[in-house]
Design a protein around this nucleic acid. Structure first.
Lengths: 152, 152
DNA sequence: CCCGCTCGGTCTCGTTTCGAGACTGAACGG
DNA sequence: CCGTTCAGTCTCGAAACGAGACCGAGCGGG
């Protein structure tokens, strides 16, 4: 029970990782972004065991990242779909892709992610909200925010 | 041995996740970005078991994400430091932080990540390399790239 | 109506991964 | 020479996991 306690840490990275950062969860979400919606779809594509997949889907539904419903277009079978909260994990996946393309794709990117309109590549940028400069880890300083526990 | 085989998939997200996407690896890297360099430092901060920590550090060193060395400034003890390849995972952590701040921080961000120079907030943006538009998952189309296996 | 199929979901069992914590050897300080 | 701290190893019990059989519900064809 020690690992889950990490989500009490006043750190959004840690909290997000405790929720999303196991072996399967982000892979499931990546598959969902690829348009897969059915239980057997996920299971077939990923090769995850059925009970594990159900655990993960249930957890994602419980946290409002997926919704489970039967499609109104007649079909009798269940669907798992991304909520808005789920859609917002996309930049995480794209950051992983950027790093993977740079370091794990010796023959070049296996897949291009292109802007519908103009055909340009989608890329993740770390930018300053104030001056719009492009940032790296070295340009950043940490400071306690409103969610940081006060030593009362 | 099934899970590791996923890194053969022609998908940079999947490959990155097989390497970085277990419960501890990204947490270890986050701790490294926070300035921790020593074995006992990681172990104390994260509460990970010693043998697991060693596994993960060894793997990160083997993949060139960390380097292990004794600091030239006298000290007799080992140090684990981020390589350039390691530094480049920072946007992944920042994307996780953005999502965590938005959905797991009801009292506001626990920690601000501020641009050294101007004090603005650092944020991750998904942008089109061509037209510089801000993108979401809905604006993106997939297309096979040079690293995609040809059906020879 | 019945039969075979696919669906999401459950159950069991053997394997792998993991955590807790005792332990080792080497380096350092007093 | 002793106590401490360091990185790293070892053992053992607990938890997570994979494979695959199994279940009931719906659906389609005959």
């Amino acid at each position: 029970m020690r690992y889950e306690e990490l989500s009490d840490e006043p750190c959004s990275i840690t909290r997000a990782l405790v929720l999303l950062g196991d072996r399967w969860t982000l892979l499931i979400l990546k598959t969902a972004f690829a348009g897969i919606r059915r239980f057997n779809g996920f299971q077939g594509v990923l090769g995850i065991s059925r009970s594990r997949l159900l655990d993960r889907l249930d957890r994602l539904v419980a946290h409002g990242i997926l919704v489970k419903r039967t499609p109104e277009s007649g079909g009798a079978h269940e669907e798992y779909r991304l909520t808005e909260k789920g859609h917002e994990v996309y930049p995480i996946l794209m950051a992983l892709r950027d790093w993977g393309d740079a370091h794990l794709a010796p023959d070049g990117p296996p897949i291009h992610y292109l802007h519908d309109g103009c055909g340009g590549e989608a890329r993740v940028h770390l930018r300053c909200d104030g001056c719009a400069a492009e940032l790296t880890a070295r340009d950043i300083t940490l400071q306690a925010g409103p969610g940081f526990p006060v030593p009362s």
